[in-house]
Amino acid sequence: MQEVLINTDIVAEENIPDKSKKGFVALSTEGLTVTFDSRPAISDVNISFLKNKVTSIIGPSGCGKSTLLRSFNYMHDLIPKSEVTGKITVLGKNINEYDSVGLRKKVGMVFQKPNPFPTLSVFENVIAGLKYTGNNKKSELEEICENVLKLSGLWDEVKDRLKVSALALSGGQQQRLCIARTLAVSPDIILMDEPTSALDPISTSKIEESIFHLKQNYTLIIVTHNMQQAARISDYTAYMYLGKLIELASTRKIFTSPSEKLTEEYITGKFG
């Protein structure tokens, strides 16, 4: 699938080099297989995600999109009887060289449903990842809090309500709070698992807007059910089906002239 990536027009335009030049690839996998209770959820996935780009992963339910995403920050550790084989390279280093805490600081994650910590205030939620890993300088934390809330487009709405419960915010605001919380730890890569599927259209557009700004400094990998969303926000799109990566190419190519017949059928709504 690597060839597909490299042959796309956008890649040519922007002169993206091959995989040997590590600097441009934020995360890549070789022969990645994840099994639950010895049944494979994804098998033999080879995929690369370019730095400072937004890559969407689309595909029908159960195709392994989330499983793929969750193997990038050791989330499968929490599930008994899960097994991850194959090679994952994160920021030029083999994933095995990171411990789970170190990896998750580099690779942040935003979940499907907004999940702010219910017992913490807005401010405490944003800085939780710093405070509970040892950073206690109040002035520094306040500065970071303001910065990341601005990045996630929430600052103007909550700057006077930093001390209220995070649950007092609306669903869309909670999700942007979760994005801010992830940014506060200053990861290089941000994984988003259907970040807007539980939100209304207005909240969705606000989050899409912040995603657009975020790619200047971060690499984003977004799993989405919504093909229009993938088309709107991503530079590259990967199509997965039955646990396999079918195609990865520039978003324009995937949605206009996909190389694979399966992709075309999904895009045009023949199934899925």
Binding site: N115, F117, T133, R181
Partner: peptide, 15 residues
């Protein structure tokens, strides 16, 4: 999901 959210921030399991 709360545990996952916390772990995903790089907070250790015990914390």
């Amino acid at each position: 999901t709360l545990r996952e959210a916390s772990l995903a921030l790089g907070i250790s399991r015990w914390k």
